[in-house]
């Protein structure tokens, strides 16, 4: 599709009678027509009905779920990220254990799990990115 877009774009760009147009303003034009001529009244009524129906459909939607969180959770559990997840979980256990009074590693008394978290997040994001873009508009 992108390939053919290129050609149509080039053609449009090359044609001297090509026209750049701001989108929209259609509904307003319709309003003008209605004001100027009363003949369009029947059309007006028929146009309004489908719009109302659409609005009702939108209201029924349940709460949206964030696809990014969903895909990343899946990715964290996947085989691809299992080493990173393993290290992160281990670190969490070690650090929270240290808080609870277990013997602390003397070499690293103030350890945090930022690095392990980075590796896990990097892996999960990498894995979720294409799926996420397919799901978003």
């Amino acid at each position: 599709m992108g390939f053919f877009d290129t050609f149509t774009d080039i053609l449009e760009a090359a044609l001297p009678w090509g026209e750049a147009r701001a989108e929209a303003a259609e509904p307003e034009e319709k309003d003008d027509e209605k004001e100027s001529g009363e003949e369009g009244k029947e059309d007006e009524e028929s146009k309004d009905e489908p719009e109302e129906a659409e609005e009702e459909e939108e209201e029924d939607e349940p709460e949206t779920e964030d696809p990014k969180e969903k895909f990343e959770e899946e990715c964290k559990e996947s085989k691809q990220c299992s080493p990173a997840k393993h290290h992160f979980d281990e670190c969490v256990e070690r650090v929270t254990g240290a808080d609870e009074g277990k013997p602390v590693d003397k070499k690293h008394p103030n350890e945090d799990c930022v690095e392990e978290f980075f590796h896990l997040a990097h892996c999960a994001n990498q894995c979720a990115a294409p799926k996420l873009w397919a799901a978003l508009k």
Binding site: G2, D5, E23, V114, E115, F118, A121, H122, W133
Partner: peptide
């Protein structure tokens, strides 16, 4: 690494492509 910050993932942005425009609806 914490000071450096986590490097962002590359996302396949549509508008970055050579022959693509911005999605004006977006």
């Amino acid at each position: 690494p914490a000071e450096e910050g986590l490097h962002p993932t590359k996302y396949p942005w549509e508008h970055v492509a050579w022959t693509k425009t911005f999605d004006h609806q977006a």
